[in-house]
């Protein structure tokens, strides 16, 4: 399937170099029963057959409800969780085929930023030590060089270099997230997975951190996988957005397409559920409110995983899984009810 995607994408030009390629990625967590003779009785299909590319210097946003597998996708790409099957490439290196030692040498190029800025910092280490740690581990220079680099990084993320001697609890949530960003940048990575980095922050601080992410991308040419559940923030920061539901990508397209012409009924209902901060528009628009809640990923519905909540589902939607394909250029979709011209069937 992804071979087919690749053939349709003009990716040989230097501008559109692929940074990360994910092919048919699956991550299933086994459910076991019994303590002594434990046997597998099922699997939580957290990520089920996901394929996409991320271009160099691009931000790919991933949105979806809790439990849809967006964080697992991010972790499986970095091999923090070993994928059940599927391939992940960083440029032309197949990450999933590397052994531990080779992987360790590749790690500096890919980093992760977590949601909980406090839990991801060692409370017993000073900020200087936290940021220096990746460089010490990877032996990137002499102690003096590392110290200079720490100061440089602190300045880069908008913190006062004099605060390097302080400890994580002395900082606010937004500042702690800046420390995490500095730590992730320490080894000059190419690719960063940001797992809900702004969800725990207040609105006015969120804006500061989002701006910082954008500035760093402009300065350093970083590539982001930006995971969040706040659709409006994701649309703001991303170039393209993938909408996930029950471990699968439902729709992947540019932000403009997503807001102007969302094709998947799930995307449409997700967009209409996001409240607009404007009373006149918010009160006068028609909403598609989905019934019920997300089914359990251990027993997803047969056929299209969305068909039991889909407002326009037809009988055949429950029979077989729709193919995830590029329906119009730069617009990937997994829905039976879309035609080749851009899904005129899907108007709710």
């Amino acid at each position: 399937m992804s071979e087919h995607i690749r053939s349709q994408k003009p990716d040989s030009t230097t501008e559109n170099q692929i940074m990360v390629r994910v092919q048919n990625l699956k991550k299933h967590f086994p459910i076991t029963k019994g303590i002594i003779w434990s046997k597998q009785v099922g699997a939580v299909k957290a990520v089920n057959n996901v394929s996409f590319d991320i271009m160099k210097g691009e931000t790919l946003g991933v949105v979806g409800e809790s439990g849809c597998g967006k964080s697992t996708t991010g972790r499986a790409i970095l091999n923090l969780l070993k994928p059940t099957s599927g391939k992940v490439f960083l440029e032309d290196i197949e990450i999933t085929a590397l052994n531990d030692n080779e992987l360790r040498h590749l790690r500096p190029r890919m980093q992760m930023i977590f949601q909980d800025s406090y839990d991801s910092l060692n409370p017993r280490h000073s900020v200087a030590k936290i940021i220096a740690e990746p460089m010490v581990v990877n032996k990137t220079g002499s102690p003096a060089e590392i110290r200079d680099r720490v100061m440089e990084l602190l300045e880069l993320v908008g913190l006062n270099p004099n605060h390097a001697v302080r400890y994580p609890h002395e900082f606010s949530g937004g500042q702690r997230q800046r420390i995490n960003i500095a730590k992730a940048l320490a080894l000059n990575p190419d690719f960063i997975v940001c797992d809900e980095p702004i969800s725990a922050l207040d609105v006015s601080i969120q804006a500061q951190i989002v701006n910082l992410f954008q500035d760093l991308q402009d300065q350093l040419g970083l590539t982001y996988l930006f995971i969040a559940h706040d659709l409006s923030m994701v649309q703001h920061i991303s170039h393209r957005v993938a909408v996930m539901y029950l471990g699968q990508i439902m729709e992947l397209t540019s932000c403009k397409n997503l807001s102007d012409n969302p094709l998947h009924p799930y995307t449409q209902s997700l967009m209409s559920a996001v409240p607009i901060p404007d009373p006149t528009r918010e009160r006068n628009r028609t909403r598609i409110i989905l019934e019920g809640e997300v089914p359990s990923p251990s027993s997803p519905p047969r056929g299209c995983v969305f068909h039991n909540r889909c407002p326009i589902a037809k009988d055949f939607c429950g029979d077989k899984m729709p193919e995830y394909k590029e329906i119009i250029p730069d617009h990937f979709l997994a829905c039976h009810l879309a035609d080749d011209k851009g899904g005129s069937l899907i108007t709710v």
């Binding site: 609105v203 006015s204 969120q206 804006a207 989002v210 659709l231 409006s232 923030m233 649309q235 703001h236 170039h239 932000c255 403009k256 807001s259 967009m271 996001v274 607009i276 901060p277």
Partner: peptide, 12 residues
């Protein structure tokens, strides 16, 4: 606060 919000019709 109002300015800190992204509009849903996001401009990149």
């Amino acid at each position: 606060l109002m300015n800190a919000l992204p509009s849903v019709k996001g401009h990149e």
